[in-house]
């Protein structure tokens, strides 16, 4: 499995990486903002099994990134889990409308992130 991790915090990416590694996922590509995420997606021909994406990031926010991904055919079906401390209802709704597959609020327990990933992938089968 191949995953794109997008978060401007190195610590958060480390935490998420650890969760992914416990799940046996080793092919992890990292991006520190939305713009870089789009570059990585193009570079890899959108060939990822899923993506974890923060919302508040410099250069390009997670929501804008999400809209960009969903606007191209290659990105239409990519499971994207927003992983963010933005936890207001209207913002969660905005992410869903923009095409988020699921939403995890920080702080999270590692096992909860894992279970969100699993259920998202199960739903997207």
């Amino acid at each position: 499995m191949k995953v794109l991790l997008t978060d401007d915090s190195t610590t958060m990416r480390k935490i998420q990486k650890r969760v992914l590694q416990t799940m046996g996922i080793t092919e992890i590509v990292e991006a520190s903002d939305g713009k870089m995420a789009l570059e990585k997606l193009t570079e890899h021909n959108y060939n990822f099994d899923f993506m974890l994406c923060d919302i508040n990031m410099p250069e390009m926010s997670g929501i804008e990134t999400l809209r960009n991904i969903r606007s191209v055919p290659e990105g239409a079906k990519l499971p994207i889990i927003m992983c963010t401390s933005v936890a207001e209802k209207d913002q969660v709704m905005e992410a869903i409308k923009a095409g988020a597959s699921n939403y995890v609020i920080k702080p999270f327990k590692p096992e909860d992130l894992q279970s969100k990933i699993e259920t998202t992938l199960q739903r997207n089968k």
Binding site: K109, D112, L113, S115, K116, T119
Partner: peptide
């Protein structure tokens, strides 16, 4: 709510 609850 992080545990298992779909965002929608």
């Amino acid at each position: 709510v992080n545990r298992g609850l779909p965002a929608l």
